[in-house]
Design a protein around this nucleic acid. Structure first.
Lengths: 206, 206
DNA sequence: GTCTATACCATGATAGAC
DNA sequence: GTCTATCATGGTATAGAC
C-alpha cells in the first residue's frame, strides 16, 4: 500500500487522526506507527506536525471523495441509491468495530476555531466533496440546484450519523439517516452516465 | 450566570471544549478562563481534567437537550417546525461568528476510540437527547417508531451540518439540511400538548 | 536519507502555606 | 476553600553523526 517513507508517514498520520483527532496525536506515535524515526518525519516534512496533518488529510479527503459516487454508481433510482449508500457505510463501520471512517470531520470539528491552517485545509476538502458530488449528480441527470442541495444534505447527514454511530456503537443512526434522506427522493431516476467527478481538492501540499 | 467557583470552572471548561475539543484544552486555560487558580480545580474536582470534562459535558448536554423541544414548541406542522429549527440554528451560528453551539459532538468524535470514560459520558448524553426527543414527539402525537426515527435523523443531521457550517463558515449546510429533512414531513400535524421531556442524562457525576 | 540524542517547553498533577 | 511553587512527564522540534 504505502511504499515510500513519505507515504507511510502520511498513511500512519491519517490512521491516527481518524481515531484521535489532531491534538491527541503525538509525533512519537506517528513515528512508531509508520516505522520511521522522528528525525525522518522532519526531514520529509519540514513544516512539522501541521504539514503532516494537512497532507494526510488532503490524501484521505481525495480518497473519501470518490466514495459517494462509487456507492451511487450501480443504482438508477436516487432513493434506492441513497439508502444503499448509508447501508454500506453502516456495514463498514460495524465491520471495523465502529472506528470512524474519515479523519476530516473529526479534525475539522476540533480545529475550526483554533488552527487556521487546518480549518482552511478541511474547508478545501469539504468544498471539493460538495463541488465534485454536485457535478456527479448533475452528470446523472439532476438539476443543478437539486444536485447541490442533495450533496450538501448527504455529506452533512453522513458526518453527523458517523459521530452518533461511533459514540453509541450502533448502526441505527446511519440506517435511519439513510432512510430519512431517501424518503424525499424515491422514484427520482438517475441517468446512466459514466463520467467521473473532478477532484479539485489539492491546494495544501505546497 | 455562574456564581460558585465550581460552576464557573464547569462553564469555562464547556466553553473551551466547545471550540477546541478535549485534548487541546489545558488545565491552565480552564483556570485562567474561570478565574480560579490551578489548585482550586483539583480541590473541587479530585478526578482532574477528566472529571471536569465529564461534568461540564453533562451540564451542557442537559441544556442543549432542551433546545429541540423548545424550538419545536411554537409550531403545529412538523415540516414547518423542522425547517424553522434549523433556520434558528443557522442564525445563532452566524451571530456567534460560526462557533460551534455544542461541545458534545466535538469531544465525542475526538475521544470515542481513546478515552472510554468520555465515550460513555457522551453516549449517555446522546441517549438522553434521543430518548427525550422521542418522548417529546410522541407527546405531540407522532407514532412511537416515527418519533424515534425522526429524532435520530434530526440530531444526526444537526451535528453533521454544524461541522460543515463551522468549517466552511456558511449557514448553507444548516439551511439545506433543514429543508431536506422538512420535505419528508410537511403537512404532518403536531398536536398541542405542553408536556416537558425528561432529562435522564445524569449518570456521570458520581 | 536514516537515525539517535537532546534541547526546550507545555502539560497534568501535587504539596503545602495561608 | 484559596492560591503558589514545583514536580515529573511527555510534547514538538532540532542537531548532527552516520
Amino acid at each position: 500500500m504505502a511504499r515510500s517513507t513519505r507515504e507511510s508517514i502520511l498513511t500512519a498520520a491519517a490512521e491516527l487522526m481518524r481515531s484521535r483527532g489532531y491534538a491527541a496525536v503525538a509525533m512519537k506515535d506517528v513515528a512508531a506507527a509508520s516505522g520511521a524515526p522522528i528525525g525522518s518525519l522532519y526531514h520529509h516534512f519540514p513544516g512539522g506536525k501541521l504539514q503532516i496533518a494537512r497532507e494526510a488529510l488532503v490524501n484521505a479527503g481525495v480518497a473519501y471523495g470518490q466514495l459517494i459516487p462509487t456507492l451511487m454508481a450501480p443504482h438508477d433510482d436516487l432513493g434506492v441509491a441513497i439508502e444503499a449508500a448509508f447501508g454500506q457505510a453502516a456495514e463498514d463501520m460495524a465491520a471495523t468495530g465502529f472506528a470512524n471512517m474519515c479523519p476530516v470531520a473529526s479534525v475539522a470539528a476540533e480545529t475550526a476555531d483554533t488552527v487556521p491552517e487546518l480549518r482552511e485545509t478541511t474547508a478545501g476538502i469539504f468544498t471539493g466533496w460538495l463541488d465534485g458530488g454536485a457535478d456527479y449528480f448533475r452528470s446523472r441527470g439532476l438539476a443543478p440546484d437539486a444536485a447541490r442541495d442533495l450533496i450538501v444534505a448527504l455529506v452533512g447527514a453522513l458526518e453527523g450519523a458517523f459521530v452518533l454511530a461511533r459514540t453509541l456503537r450502533s448502526t441505527e443512526p446511519l440506517l435511519v439517516a439513510g432512510r430519512a434522506l431517501a424518503d424525499g427522493h424515491r422514484g427520482v431516476p438517475l441517468t446512466a452516465q459514466p463520467r467521473l467527478p473532478l477532484d479539485d481538492v489539492a491546494n495544501a501540499s505546497s
